[in-house]
Design a protein around this nucleic acid. Sequence first.
DNA 1: TTCCTAATAAGCCAAATAGCTAATTAATGC
DNA 2: GCATTAATTAGCTATTTGGCTTATTAGGAA
Lengths: 130, 130
Amino acid sequence: MLTMHQKLKIFKALGNETRFLIFKNVFTGGYTCSLDKKQEGVEINPIATCVSTVAEHFNFSLPTISNHIKELREAGIITVEKKGNKVYIEPNIETIREMAECFATLVSNFDANRELFFNHTPKESDDANP
Amino acid sequence: MLTMHQKLKIFKALGNETRFLIFKNVFTGGYTCSLDKKQEGVEINPIATCVSTVAEHFNFSLPTISNHIKELREAGIITVEKKGNKVYIEPNIETIREMAECFATLVSNFDANRELFFNHTPKESDDANP
DNA sequence: TTCCTAATAAGCCAAATAGCTAATTAATGC
DNA sequence: GCATTAATTAGCTATTTGGCTTATTAGGAA
């Protein structure tokens, strides 16, 4: 269960365009091209990628991308694993699963309260006019 | 369907502690005490509250809270409605419903891909060791 | 009209953020 | 050992953010 502090860090992390794009690509396989460069004999999740490969997708310096990745890691959105002299980053799906649950719970509780207080079940047609 | 730009604004808006707390209270009824102050004969959603009532919950000035509310509104997280000389704010559940869907879709697509590529269905017991 | 309240707009300032380059660390390869 | 590559750390700067106070706008009440 995510604390409020953790949720805040996640929102802060994803509220920056560069970090949002890294997040998107890491979770949807946008960086799998990095497989071509993977070191011989090193076993990694094929969705994983290394910091320098991520940096190639941006016009920002490697230290800047490294710092963004650090923030995504500290927010629990990705995990990192050092193999040789490279650092591979992987999506942390459990955090996203928890976020999905938080939002879903908020919506279902809200709908339940609305029904309770207003005897009103939301329909497609009246989202803005309860 | 939320654009990336809209999602970014939502994350930015919720990445600030004060705005997060306003969001939380507006959606969970934390400000319903404002009902006591509602103007006679004015029909409002009982979960709604006005800007000055929100400000009473913080040690920040009214203009500061007003500005935070403006950002939440511009992110589509709340709606505002002027009644007399007060501005009532209400949760915009549709935006949260869309966020819930985004995260849920990301998770289910991720799980589907994982099964596809690794012939592996995630279980409770092995979240970190696929 | 005049006064009062609610809210916003404008302008100011300190702190945080996001970029950079240069320096450092760590692992690989010669 | 020495050079190369990957990544991080440190230190710097410009911009953005988040707070404030003061001024302004808008509506309700005397």
